[in-house]
């Protein structure tokens, strides 16, 4: 049995920290750290090096002419940061962009979420946001006809549709007055997730695209939730006209997921995590590139940090090639 015991490396190292041999290794280079976290690869911002890093409670400026933006508050006429991150200024407006945030949604977003609670006429759904999103009983497709009105009996058997722990893919429909998200699954694209595994990445890494449902060429389906929750599953041929509405709420995985299917799903999952580790944007093209790059490694090596970095770098090179 082989277990790799590693020494830690500096955050956002890119191999640099481990190769540095100078005596001042202990004073870590913050611009390195933040440049990595702030801007996914390929972004051209912050190249001038004038990064102002703040921690919560740190005074940004005592100049009263500035306005407070996101991530800041005013205390004793001073502008103070409420998060750890990088100061951004647009004219007189100062805001702090946090290094790591929860998902903040927009209407129309495709999200993957997990049911946390079943209450009166609604489900609460964890979508990696500041509070749980809400899925109303009236915002789902009831079995037995898309246009059926909801009845009292439906209310009593809500758990037959979605139970605590179930994973769903849904669309963000509206905001409640307290800022909570209202979701809906009123399309056959949306609903319960089966036949695969769940991974989670930073929400900022998933870009808004035309489609977040992808059937990749290697026979793996991927749903990229804009909240950073991603569902990787075995390929299921979809014909939206012929879906049995009873099947939408089934908990049964399909019978014939072979070991090869599982390996492909695991490989895709690890490729996505590799891209996330190297803070690269995640979309179907990059995933495919990463998958191709990963084929030279055996599956069980893909959990290694070093291999992940290599795969992500190769995928980044492929993307650059594509751009020309």
């Amino acid at each position: 049995m082989q277990v790799s015991f590693l020494s830690p490396t500096a955050r956002g190292a890119d191999g640099r920290a481990s190769s540095r041999k100078d005596d001042q290794d202990m004073d870590l280079d913050f611009s390195d750290l933040l440049g990595q976290h702030q801007t996914p690869k390929g972004s051209k911002d912050f190249k001038d090096g004038s990064i102002h890093v703040v921690t919560p409670g740190e005074t940004i400026t005592s100049d009263t002419q500035f306005m407070r933006g996101h991530g800041t508050y005013v205390e004793q006429e001073k502008l103070v940061s409420s998060v750890a991150g990088v100061v951004e200024r647009v004219n007189k407006l100062i805001s702090v962009k946090a290094l790591n945030t929860r998902y903040s949604g927009e209407i129309g977003d495709v999200v993957v979420g997990r049911i946390t609670e079943v209450t009166q006429k609604r489900w609460k759904v964890d979508v990696n946001g500041r509070q749980d999103a809400i899925l109303m009983l009236s915002s789902i497709n009831l079995p037995g006809g898309v246009q059926r009105r909801k009845q009292e009996s439906d209310e009593l058997q809500m758990r037959t549709f979605f139970m605590e722990g179930d994973l769903v893919v849904a669309e963000l429909q509206a905001f409640f007055h307290d800022g909570a998200y209202s979701l809906h699954t009123r399309s056959l694209k949306y609903g319960k997730l089966r036949n695969g595994s769940f991974i989670s990445v930073a929400p900022a890494l998933v870009q808004r695209c035309k489609s977040h449902f992808h059937s990749l060429s290697m026979g793996v389906d991927v749903i990229l939730g804009l909240n950073g929750y991603i569902w990787v599953s075995a390929y299921v041929p979809q014909n939206l006209d012929e879906i049995d509405t009873e099947q939408v709420y089934s908990n049964k995985n399909k019978e014939d997921i072979s070991a090869e299917d599982r390996e492909r799903i695991a490989r895709v999952s690890n490729c996505i995590l590799a891209l996330a580790q190297e803070l690269m944007f995640i979309n179907d093209t990059v995933i495919t590139f990463a998958y191709e790059a990963s084929l030279q490694y055996p599956l069980k090596d893909l959990i290694k940090q070093e291999v992940k970095a290599a795969i992500a770098n190769e995928a980044a090179a492929s993307v650059d090639n594509l751009r020309g």
Binding site: V3, S7, E263, S269, K300
Partner: peptide, 18 residues
């Protein structure tokens, strides 16, 4: 099937940094 969700086999450890 000896294929875990992250591609490991049953007896595989993840990397440990210490």
């Amino acid at each position: 099937a000896n294929v875990r969700a992250d591609g490991r086999q049953r007896g595989d450890y993840r990397e440990v940094s210490i």
